[in-house]
Design a protein around this nucleic acid. Structure first.
Lengths: 206, 206
DNA sequence: GTCTATAAACCGATAGAC
DNA sequence: GTCTATCGGTTTATAGAC
């Protein structure tokens, strides 16, 4: 028989995760106590342990859910055929998706050291899967003589670092719209990897 | 009259700062206790307070010393005349200097929120001074029609983010030498901002 | 499902002996 | 300059009442 008045756990569970995400991002995992999270949710500290076995698992669940969503969103993206266009789409996707989840991204870069080795390994595998998607675009562009890239792995890291930088300085109420920031960044990324026209002519002629 | 057998403070002081730097970088400021630092140094916790009034000031001293050294090293750099060469020199300097002080850099990006507002403001001013040095190079290159940059402030941040990325993945025992990484990065940065030759010809002709 | 109460440990910082 | 001892407060996590 169904419960009469839906259990609170359907409401409190998400509230715990939201509060933890916000507080971890603001003050850091180690600096946030379970009591603070409980206060934000509106329950006593002991009640949190109905929703997570411990603080460390709570952190891992937040981070793995974030990475799961990121990979799902990437796979759901419609990718154009041409590598030059693919790179532009990827850059814009990366900025847009990550800006919408600043807290989770911030924690993902700051609190990895607070994970157990096993939990770290799981997240690291997901991160590598995401990076590989970008590297594949670079490799495709390289083969098509569209990109001039010394080292695809290094360039992958360089592009992602550059795009992530947006998170540290962009303010929605600032001078530039996000649309304009996306445009400038995807343009810069393109220029950084594209092959000079003269060099391309020579290569194609061979 | 001079002391007979140099005070221990000449040795213990630096040891405290070294231990704190290492531990803060490894576990995070909030996660490291004064007792842990003391153990690493080989003294009791109480003795640490001979070298710092409190934990927060210890953090600030580490970070401000780092920024002071960075600005001094930048000012001591010999800068070529041509903006294109200046940008290359800056990129290489940034990677080399920061790679040699990974712990301090790491803490500088992670633990700013653990500073008092006053201490944060001081460090932020130093950071802005460093960034301005890069922006000036971009502005000079823009005036000389060497660079094609949409927004010098945004581009400054993008370049620094990209260069900082090296710290998160580079391993000295890895596939690439630091010299080679410097070369590839400074090349990529150059391509990202340089004006297309065709566009430059047109502009100069006007 | 949530509460109160509590265990066991740890925290930053200080006082006073040596 | 360093030690031991300690204060007053915090922490994570659990036990048991409701």
């Amino acid at each position: 028989m169904a419960r009469k008045t839906g259990s609170h756990s359907d409401i409190t569970g998400p509230k715990v995760r939201e509060a933890a995400l916000r507080l971890f991002a603001e003050h850091g995992f180690a600096a946030v106590s379970m009591r603070q999270i409980a206060k934000e949710v509106g329950v006593q500290a002991g009640a949190l342990y109905l929703y997570t076995p411990d603080k460390q698992t709570l952190l891992f669940d937040l981070l793995s859910a974030h990475m799961r969503d990121l990979l799902a969103a990437l796979r759901a993206m419609e990718m154009p055929e041409h590598p030059v266009r693919q790179l532009e789409v990827f850059a814009r996707f990366h900025i847009r998706f990550h800006m919408a989840r600043r807290d989770a991204v911030f924690i993902s870069y700051m609190e990895l050291r607070n994970l157990t080795p096993e939990n770290f390994a799981k997240l690291d595998a997901m991160r590598r899967e995401y990076e590989t998607a970008l590297e594949q675009i670079l490799i495709a562009g390289q083969k098509a003589h569209e990109f001039d890239v010394d080292d695809t792995k290094l360039t992958t890291m360089a592009i992602i670092s550059m795009l992530n930088g947006v998170l540290t300085w962009y303010r929605p109420d600032g001078r530039l719209s996000l649309e304009r920031v996306e445009a400038i960044y995807s343009d810069m990324v393109g220029k950084a990897v594209r092959m000079a026209r003269s060099k391309r002519k020579k290569l194609v002629a061979e």
